[in-house]
Amino acid sequence: MTTPSASDGARPAGAGRAPSPAALGNAAAADEGQQSLLRLHQVGKNFGPVQALAGIDLDIPAGLVTAIVGDNGAGKTTLIKTISGIWQPDHGEIVWMGRPIHLHSPRDAAKLGIATVYQDLALCDNLDIVQNMFLGREAIRHWQLDENSMELSAKQTLSDLAVMSVRSIRQPVGSLSGGQRQAVAVAKAVMQEAKLVVMDEPTAALGVTQTRVVLDLIGRLARRNIAVVVISHNLNDVMAVADRVAVLHLGRLAAVGPTSRFDTQVIVDLMTTGASTRLRGDAAGSPSADPGNGGSQQSQDNALNAGEAL
């Protein structure tokens, strides 16, 4: 489990929200690959004739929140399913902590410390919080489930994350609100010593209060030096919580960079057309990923250059 002292070195304190200048420097370093926990290099994925992903170059640094945005069909889901081992890429390579890896299943990913949190698929409503957090890796003592030690460490993890205000961690998960369920799923990943937590639409279907709880939680994960990848349709959430933004358009990376380089309008432009004339501080011109120019090295280079320039 990540200790607070480890996160201190990797990231300035209090950088959970909009990045401070120091955090920006850190993110830039990550782009050079020094801090990169996970690196996708020219990753592509086809489903028959359909090119779902092409030439994706993306660095996921530890201790930062990377938001992946894009319109429906842009490849967001394909991308996280590739990261979490559900699908294998057809092209390119995935580098984890400097080592190329091949993920054949979600279990492979989980073993490395890549945890994916789905809003609805992750928890058993009829089991209580402790039982859910330890599902699949129960503690055993004298041939029996060691309920006490599991309850103690679940309690510890939840209080470390400081999100749960439940009365008892022995209540069934089905009785929790959406935000609390999300928190349990994240706490489960943290307890299993995940280094990278992938969250698919973590705030969809949540109310304002619960959304705030989940966004706070995401910030707290990053402060524990855990890399967080968030997919979201809600650009307000993205701007609030992400340190870095990656915009996908028709299976290509339209742009990637620190959140400060984007605003909602720029992201919308990039999501819908793959280009924006208003990208802040973009000396090299807008990144382009011409959808009609499928698979061309030129457009991939452009996207890559745009990403590096940021």
């Binding site: 009829n126 089991l127 599902l135």
Partner: peptide
Amino acid sequence: RYIYAIGGNAEAARRAG
């Protein structure tokens, strides 16, 4: 525990290994 987990949400149980 797994019997209850599968009865509650088989997909979650499978994902938990």
